[in-house]
Design a protein around this nucleic acid. Structure first.
Lengths: 139, 139
DNA sequence: ACAATCCCGACGAAATCACTCGGGATTGAG
DNA sequence: CTCAATCCCGAGTGATTTCGTCGGGATTGT
């Protein structure tokens, strides 16, 4: 979630906050964030005043990881999946010449997903503020 | 459909033949091929001995055209569609920074789809035979 | 005339998506 | 210690899409 990127470094953010900001139902976010946690992208702290945090800097989190965590292996068609585990040899595979097309499409998708990080999606405002603070405090 | 590419130049192919070759229900193919016809990619001849033919050489038919005909505008998410007609300004668009990601993904997809033609998907066997015949007959 | 073929609209089953519900487990604050 | 805030988690729902069926009509070569 982009919101977590925005909030990176400000301590755990509760689902209630995020739900308010994103205007999404809290219960739904729970499911999404659980996948992200299972994938090791976010960490949770329980109890009052708890919430979720990124486990790494936004710049190091590829969007491919996020998408894989949220939607499973990247595959435009199930006969052209990312993940050898879930490879499905479609019954027509022998004659099916279309597969190469899907594989190329998939590679194009994963390529651009790999080339973007969470940081690319957080609105630059807050980052600029961070920089400013650094500039003001340091000297 | 790739089968039509394979059969290009051999006169109209009936749905019954294609259905047999592809092992797909004929009634279903009807729907698909109707979209292709509406898009001008195939032409039909009715009556006994009729069927469908490509309207152009396989080499000149981009897979992007085929996919658009079959599945509508290319869009990984509806807020990042190909076709300005069906553009949907999602209600969160103001704050939604994710859109650029989808646009890039979409461009990657259309790019590879644009770069492949039907000819790239027809198995080379028959083409090779054609070449062979040409080579044998000519001298 | 008749059989092969396309034309076409309506229907249906299954999967997926976006989301809800309800109740537990953990933990900081008072 | 108690309590409220918070995460944890499985089960359920409604809309939409996808893949496919059905039935009957319109054309046309033989």
């Amino acid at each position: 979630m982009v919101q977590l990127g925005v909030r990176y470094g400000t301590g755990p953010a509760s689902l209630a906050e995020i739900a308010a900001d994103e205007d999404l139902p809290r219960a739904y976010l729970e499911q999404l964030v659980m996948s992200l946690r299972d994938a090791g992208l976010v960490a949770s702290t329980r109890g009052a005043h708890g919430g979720y945090e990124l486990t790494r800097q936004p710049e190091t989190i590829r969007m491919s990881e996020v998408l894989r965590a949220l939607e499973g292996p990247i595959a435009p068609m199930l006969c052209a999946t990312d993940d050898p585990e879930h490879a499905v040899t479609c019954d027509r595979s022998a004659r099916c010449t279309v597969n190469v097309l899907w594989v190329r499409v998939r590679d194009a998708i994963t390529g651009t997903l790999e080339s973007m990080t969470l940081a690319d999606l957080v609105p630059p405002r807050l980052v600029a503020v961070d920089d400013l603070q650094g500039a003001l405090i340091a000297p």
